[in-house]
């Protein structure tokens, strides 16, 4: 169950309460998030939509512990990350979050295999255990035969699949995707979405994804819209727009 009204019980995997994020540019303050609430359960697949500049990336960065909110709290699996120090947060990210950005994901001088192995270098796993995990992750994304290719030898869609393999290799608590198909053509985008659906459906992953593309968003269980610094559910939003238009 995904809720945006702050009514979720404390059992939910991700629990966001009263989240505020304010940037100051020059002397002027920009309120991006204003008292945002969100509850996501394990195994949910959520898409965030909203106009450019509405704060989607900002929200994802906060959820992933890459940035700190101006006010409010984020609790993941019982850990309140909003109170963690910088180095604690880094450790927490390594254990709990898999990131898939729109671009700049892969290190160009490392092979697909070596890129996927990176998160495991931060663990205590032995070399042979690492190899098992990397091979499994690459097999899941269908690139078992491209392990020793460099990013420039792969297509955009394949690169993004390597990124997904890297995001899942350490079996994180949830995945954050910021426009994972933004740079891809329709066909590759469909393949990536099929893969993400499989991760959710078959492997029970929890995925939070930002997208501009309604077709992509439609594959998520729930689509939430960022409007005026808070999240609203897809239908409610459309109704409010209609209601506004009728009035």
């Amino acid at each position: 169950m995904v809720r945006v009204d702050g009514s979720g019980n404390s059992q939910s995997l991700i629990c966001v309460r009263g989240l505020n994020k304010t940037y100051s540019r020059g002397g002027e303050k920009i309120q991006v998030l204003q008292g945002l609430n969100l509850d996501v359960d394990k195994g949910d697949f959520v898409a965030f939509m909203g106009p450019s500049g509405s704060g989607k990336t900002t929200l994802l960065n906060l959820l992933g512990g890459l940035d700190v909110p101006s006010a409010g709290s984020i609790t993941v699996d019982g850990d309140e990350i909003t109170h963690m120090s910088g180095s604690k947060l880094t450790q927490w990210r390594a254990r709990h979050v898999g990131f898939i950005f729109q671009m700049y994901n892969l290190i160009p001088v490392l092979t697909a295999y070596q890129n996927v192995e990176l998160p495991l270098l931060l663990t205590k796993l032995s070399g042979s255990d690492r190899r098992k995990h990397v091979e499994t992750a690459l097999a899941v994304v269908g690139l078992g035969d491209r392990m020793h290719h460099y990013p420039r030898q792969l297509s955009g869609g394949q690169e993004q699949r390597v990124t997904i393999a890297r995001a899942i290799v350490s079996d994180p608590t949830f995945l954050l995707c910021d426009e994972p198909t933004g740079d891809l053509d329709r066909k590759s985008a469909d393949e990536i979405m099929a893969l993400i659906e499989e991760l959710v459906g078959k492997y029970g992953k929890t995925v939070l994804m930002v997208t501009h593309d309604p077709v992509v968003a439609a594959r998520a269980h729930t689509t939430l819209h960022l409007e005026k610094g808070v999240l609203v559910e897809g239908k409610a939003s459309r109704q409010s727009v209609l209601a506004g238009g009728a009035a």
């Binding site: 992933g64 890459l66 910088g86 180095s87 880094t90 450790q91 990210r93 390594a94 254990r95 990131f99 950005f101 671009m103 700049y104 994901n105 290190i107 160009p108 990176l118 998160p119 931060l122 890297r166």
Partner: peptide
Amino acid sequence: TGELAVLKAIGVTD
């Protein structure tokens, strides 16, 4: 810069 940022995101310490 972008690559280093990704490394940090996945948990490489400063």
